[in-house]
Design a protein around this nucleic acid. Sequence first.
RNA 1: GGGGCCGUAGCUCAAUUGGUUAGAGCACUGGACUGUCGAUCCAGAGGUUGCGGGUUCGAGCCCCGUCGGCCUCGCCA
Length: 593
Amino acid sequence: MLRSHTCGQLRSSNIGQEVTLCGWVDTSRDHGGTIFLDLRDRYGKTQCVVNPDSGAEFLEVAKKLRGEDVALVKGLVHARLEGKDNQKLSTGDIEIRASEIRLLNRSKTPPFFPNQPELPGEDLRLKYRYIDLRREAMQRTLMLRSQIIKAMRDYFEQHDFVDVETPILGRSTPEGARDYLVPSRVHWGHFFALPQSPQLYKQILMVAGYDRYIQVARCFRDEDLRADRQPEFTQLDLEMSFVDSNDVISMIDGLMKKLAKDLLGLELELPLPRMTYDEAVRRFGSDAPDLRFGMEIVDCTEFARQSAFRVFSGAAEAGGYIRGIKVDRRAEEFSRKRIDELTEFVKHDFGAKGLAWFRVETDGSLWSPISKNVEPEIQLQFQQAFDARPGDLILLLADSWDVTCKGLNGLRRRLGAELKLYDSKQMHFSWVVEFPMFEKDEAEERWVAMHHPFTAPRPQDMQLLQTAPQTCRAQAYDLVINGYEAGGGTIRIHDSDTQQVVFDLLGITPDMAADRFGFLLDALRFGAPPHGGIALGIDRIVMLFGGLDNIRDCIAFPKTQRAMDLMTAAPGTVETKQLHELHVQVETPPVKN
RNA sequence: GGGGCCGUAGCUCAAUUGGUUAGAGCACUGGACUGUCGAUCCAGAGGUUGCGGGUUCGAGCCCCGUCGGCCUCGCCA
């Protein structure tokens, strides 16, 4: 060990000790006869003083040190001179009077410095990730991530869970996200798929009697990226036997309480609030509502349809809805230009036909460019429906159910952030439960599983599978934190007959099922216990607990939006020989013009 | 696949809206300085304005294409 202490360790209680520190040169302040070096490692910074007492030889070494050089300093811990302490540093009461200083390794001038005030461009940060990871903010986040995973493991160990690893090389399953494929060398024309989640394996583990399973599992989905989506991400995967929805939810409630307390010092009230999917969509237009603020959706279809104003009546006649949200007391902050921007936003991003709005005047009446088109009695109903007060702004969409949901959810989230309707440190945890079993595939006339094909319907909805699948609700539950889906799970189907009924509905024939999931259907016939589970998105949880706005900052080596690793330049080409071995040919790309 | 924002010195940004020699701070190089902590002071070096084409007497600025980063819709059971 070259060092005796870390750079964040020494305090006034160490005064008088001889110590050796190693680290990166954070800054150096050269006064000619005296040089101050701040040595940095992931634990902190310590000021080291080099002067003629250290020896002329070492003064020369210190003079040549530059930022990010790696150095070793040996010396006595001294109290700072009177009034020269630095309260910004945890080690600011002391300094090291160097008796020896060594350059362990020179650094080229880096493209950016970990301590520079302005954040460099993200492409540069990703290319030189080893320098970016020296930044205090990145180190804090990665340590938070480590603590969160440790707390999760501790919690589940206390509850008798077994950590089991499942294969990374598996088989492609139909439906779901696009798979990352790995060609088999041994089996011509056959491919492994990287797991989108360990779903089937953990169900098999339940059949095998490992009644409480967890895994910190890497998952892969070859879909387009977002601020909160990476092609490879990490889940805390969990499955339990002999449980219902309530048991799984309670188990995770306990985990969230522990995480909030241990890492944020927050006391959560249990049980965490729960809301059905239908209620969430009705009140907030989203299955992952941000409940840090109100601004609930008001449905005005019943009375607005009676207006002669075609925007309203036409939408209602077409089977659509007139729904809206209200900005409390801040209409004066909404210029025509700003409202035009919001209109463009809902039209462009969510396909809305337009955005209708009313401003509430001091006498309580409504004003809008469309006021003259909307009958006074209908306007009165809007006032009552929204409990309109002077200064309020009412924003309305008249469109299909889907467009009103997406558009109002989009508006609500955007306005919540722009108007700062919540404190940035605020955290809101809740559950959304009882999702539909199926949704209609847009293009084709067929049902697709909303969660996955192994999800069990609610017992009371079992007959609906045959009669009215669209109304059938699942034993499904999503954990929602600040408007993000932080996790989701279901109780699974544990008998092969029900599983086959669901497959039928999804258009998966017995032959296909046997081919793709035969092993699961077999397993279900060999004594499968009732079981269910959940998967938590660890990257997102770290992001939310760390108060960050993207998951790249929670991952040591993330990919860009175009799914590249800028540091290693992956993906890259391979030798023709490798392709031959794998029996893979690469198509010639189309010529662009 | 669609839409949007961005790309100027190593880094972060500016450039009077199309005008002739593209600037600043930090970093870098050299020098001065024994108590700084974003040290200070003096001097210096540093540019294919992402790339390619076009419009123009003239382009960092306008147009087209392209590459890269980010945001977003679709997509993500």
